[in-house]
Amino acid sequence: MPLLTVTNLSVYFHTRNGVVRAAEDVSFEIEKGETLAIVGESGSGKSVTCYSLMGLVPQPPGRIESGSAIFDGKIDLLKCPPQELNRIRGKRMAMIFQDPMTSLNPYLRIEDQVIEPLMIHEDIDRRDAVRRGIHALEEVGVPDVARRIRSYPHEFSGGMRQRVMIAMALITQPELLIADEPTTALDVTIQAQILDLLKDLKKKTGMSILLITHNLGIVGDLADKVAVMYAGRIVEQAPAAVLLKKPLHPYTIGLMRSIPKLGAHAERLQSIPGTVPDAARLPVGCKFHARCDRAQGDCTLDPEPKLVEADGSTRRVRCPYWDKPELKRTIP
């Protein structure tokens, strides 16, 4: 039984400028100990998807229109009452945020913030909590913990703060860690350290990770499975190794081409032409047709293509022409 099963999740924002369909019909599963990476550009709906799992979508204007997210076979995260959700988040399911510079409270000591999940979720006295806090911080590689635990966040560097965030998320030994672009706001060298740290911790604790990223480059390192999102939809879903070796959807192929590669083939870096469509005014038909290099006439017509199984049943792709890479774009 998977740890988390998300089925047909749709999240809309009802704004003055119309309905923004931030996530549409998103489904995926995460097994115990497995890492799923959701990849996509800004505005593709990947953050909204994980925010809705944590109950963090502001309602209104946001609304979860349909779908379910069954955690551990029993609890529907999208429909359970707030008290029950509060018992799960921070305890069995934790989240680390994109920007460590703003996701720690500047007025509270590191100590108080790191042990907070313990204090509210476990029946534990403060001294033991602090002891575990120190241990958790050592685990993530914060130096000189005994002294630094009394400092405030502004006395830490970005990379150290992200380590603190990770320690905080992992202190209750959650079964699922949601990492929303955990390395985006960090320097490249620090990025590598944090990714190594996550990989280590994953091996050690056996937790599942839902990794949100726009960087396909880090996927191969960490993820077992990948879901590529575009305009609120999953366009391709496959085991990480398979997807990286042979992407099928034209959008995934475009993404792969836009990763800089080191080595002999110093070819020109390619980009995907155009921009992500406005989520309040999505095009008819396939949402990617305006930027696609194999778009055909029927791509511009409703209904949009469905997510279909490809290459046996190991993967799914939302493109009727996934097996025809030789096609040329025939619409203007």
Binding site: N86, R89, T102, L104
Partner: peptide
Amino acid sequence: EFIEAARALGLR
């Protein structure tokens, strides 16, 4: 973000 993080911790 740190308030969102606090919510994500399941705080009242």
